[in-house]
């Protein structure tokens, strides 16, 4: 974990601040925390007709992969998966590009009204989605951009958080590094591209993962913008499946959809846990 670093000291504050009992209460609480997820995982491996007779069937064999193979035959779920990928990757690339360029300029270059513009951009951080989403919906209707990939990705690129993060990161790079290049009269874009950008990779990773998750999990905008079934993102698709929960095709099949839809983020989480924790914490506090 990023937040914990091992210190080689004879004295450990652990002894005074932590407590075995507290840890075990937390461990019991963890079981409560994970129970709903395990429950859904269990349901996803059960035959639907068996579940019709009662969901306690989960606790005993037989188990089956049928719900997952059904998923592979239901082409729409894969279409939604693909849509989510395109939108999330596209939005991430967009945010990284725009934020890096703007962050470099705000941190390193002088131009008229630089400070004023930066303050205005910072104000953008305080604007919640619902203050703009109705007007955005109307704009995208005028431009006929609903139910398109570009229409799904663009609003997320207006977030000021990336610019804010990259500006701070560029500021933290020692000035000597690019001033040396300036003496050789290297064009600014070349300095940005060849000298500074490679140094920002840790920030790019953090911002990239953060944006990807945000885009992948986004709910409200795709809900109103993607109204055609084949333009749904996975998030919206799963929402539409659960809307008729009562008369659903089968609990097991629905559970398999939930597991399938959460797999990508869970995998990303397992590999990039540190970056994700840093990014989400930073994103919340700003």
């Amino acid at each position: 974990m990023a937040v914990l670093s091992k210190k080689n000291r004879s004295f450990s504050p652990d002894k005074l601040t932590s407590n075995r009992a507290l840890f075990w209460i937390a461990a019991v609480f963890a079981i409560v925390m994970i129970a709903p997820a395990l429950w859904v995982l269990g349901l996803s491996f059960k035959d639907n007709t068996l579940l019709m007779r009662g969901s306690e069937a989960v606790f005993s064999a037989p188990y089956t992969l049928k719900n997952y193979t059904d998923l592979f035959h239901s082409s729409l779920v894969f279409r939604w998966f693909l849509n989510s990928m395109v939108v999330a990757v596209g939005q991430t690339v967009g945010v990284l590009t725009l934020s890096s360029l703007a962050g470099y300029a705000f941190a390193r270059l002088e131009f008229p009204f630089r400070k004023t513009i930066f303050v205005i951009v910072l104000f953008g951080l305080a604007v919640p989605e619902q203050a703009v989403i109705i007007a955005r919906h109307q704009m995208f209707s005028w431009l006929n951009m609903h139910n398109s990939y570009l229409g799904l990705m663009l609003p997320g690129m207006s977030s000021a958080f990336g610019v804010f993060l990259m500006t701070q990161f560029f500021r933290a790079i020692p000035k000597e590094i690019d001033e040396a290049a300036l003496l050789d009269n290297t064009p600014r874009f070349r300095i940005f591209w060849k000298v500074l950008l490679p140094l920002t990779m840790p920030a790019q990773a953090t911002l990239g993962i953060f944006t990807f998750l945000l885009a992948w999990n986004d709910y409200w905008w795709p809900l109103i913008s993607a109204t055609k079934k084949d333009m749904y993102t996975l998030t919206i698709g799963i929402a539409s499946s659960q809307r008729n929960f009562a008369q659903t095709e089968g609990l097991g099949f629905l559970a398999a959809q939930a597991v399938f839809a959460s797999l990508p983020v869970i995998i990303v989480y397992i590999f990039f846990q540190r970056n994700i924790v840093t990014a989400v914490s930073g994103g919340a506090v700003k």
Binding site: M33, P36, A37, W39, V40, L213, W216, N217, D218, Y219, L234, T235, I236, I238, A239, Q242, L254, Q257, A258, A261, S262, V265, I266, V268, Y269, I276, V280
Partner: peptide, 12 residues
């Protein structure tokens, strides 16, 4: 659980 989307959380 923080990384899951709202639709998966509600489904669970």
């Amino acid at each position: 659980s923080t990384v899951l989307s709202v639709t998966i959380v509600t489904l669970i």
